[in-house]
Design a binder for these strands. Structure first.
Lengths: 197, 197
DNA sequence: CTCCTATCTTGTCAGTGTCAGGATAGGGTG
DNA sequence: CACCCTATCCTGACACTGACAAGATAGGAG
């Protein structure tokens, strides 16, 4: 009884929404230390919970990263859709998607790496597979609206991904010196090079 | 004396060329388990040496990966040059470089990831910085031979890198079904889209 | 032959992921 | 209301990891 009241005064035994809290903590840890130094215990500590608490919600560390990757793919698609909202016509929409692709890579580089360059997430897990598939399906739809085929899909995807991945890795020194408007204009022209028609 | 002879019968105390042996062992470990599960002790075990032996040659784990990345960049440049050897003209040479870019990513995906998508290597270290710079300088030279400028450099680099990174991550299902000749022809056309002129 | 330095080993420490077993909360059943 | 049942969370333990300190060994310089 006494222990009960002392606990209630400080912190409840049951978190309430630990799963979501762990996901946000994991993303923060990922952004701070990178995927390669990712620590499950640090995530638990950041969420204010014991080191074994995540196991019940995600199984193991890869399970957490798999769930985070699935959520990341949704936000990745959201970043593209956000840019497309202010686009007129199929051609402009495809370009906007490419800009959204880059937006995501720049604003959340480690999440971008988790999604595209990590072996940790399990892509056989339905939640992640479907999230990734939805993003790809959207890309396909964009090209089909332009009357393009498989080679055009690959062209747009590779160009957008190449720019995004190099930018996420800070390999494009030439771009940090440019203003937002300049950068957008350069990327726009690059994407227009590879679009069909 | 007795211990001495027993040692010589099995394994010498001094390795002879441990530094090189550790680099090859590290690359093998990297290919087997990926960067994110890379273990310095496993590398030492594979090289048949104690777990603290690498420290003397590379300082810490990141030091080993930095040295490996520098060597990787040289082989990366070598892969491009190998393709360019059988090319006629500046235009064909730029396309060949892109094919070599992909060759490297497909034959050594984890080394490719170490070079372009990892935080572990220290790019301030001269050996690595210069190796990476040499590869970039070669790319610049290829475009300048074509009379292109900075946007054209970015265009070729982003397209080649996008294809290579997606392929290294096994994201291009459409390409595994194709023959080598088909794949080369598709990539060639993609690269020609972004070259100037 | 002696010493000196580079090289490699052994031993130890804190930190990590995962598993087993125990504690707690809250809801459903009698 | 009393009971228990399940999901949730914690504590403790184990093997593994990277890093450091101190000792052992080899081979060359003097």
């Amino acid at each position: 009884m006494l222990r009960y009241h002392r606990r209630m005064a400080t912190k409840p035994y049951h978190h309430g929404d630990l799963r979501a809290a762990l996901l946000t903590a994991a993303e923060a840890e990922l952004a701070d230390h990178g995927i390669e130094s990712f620590s499950l215990r640090q995530v638990a500590k950041r969420a204010g919970v014991s080191h074994a608490a995540p196991a019940h919600h995600f199984g193991d560390a890869n399970g957490l990263l798999t769930a985070l990757a699935a959520e990341g793919f949704q936000r990745f698609l959201g970043a593209m859709l956000a840019r497309e909202a202010s686009a007129a016509g199929a051609r402009d929409r495809a370009v906007a998607a490419g800009l959204g692709y880059l937006d995501f890579a720049l604003s959340r580089p480690t999440l971008f790496r988790l999604i595209f360059s990590s072996r940790k997430p399990d892509f056989n897990k339905p939640a992640l597979f479907e999230a990734g598939d939805a993003a790809y399906a959207h890309l396909v739809a964009l090209i089909e609206d332009l009357g393009g085929g498989p080679p055009d899909i690959l062209a747009l995807w590779a160009m957008a991904h190449g720019i995004a991945d190099l930018a996420a890795g800070q390999r494009l020194r030439m771009m940090v010196d440019m203003s937002d408007a300049e950068r957008i204009e350069v990327i726009r022209r690059l994407l227009l090079r590879v679009l069909p028609g």
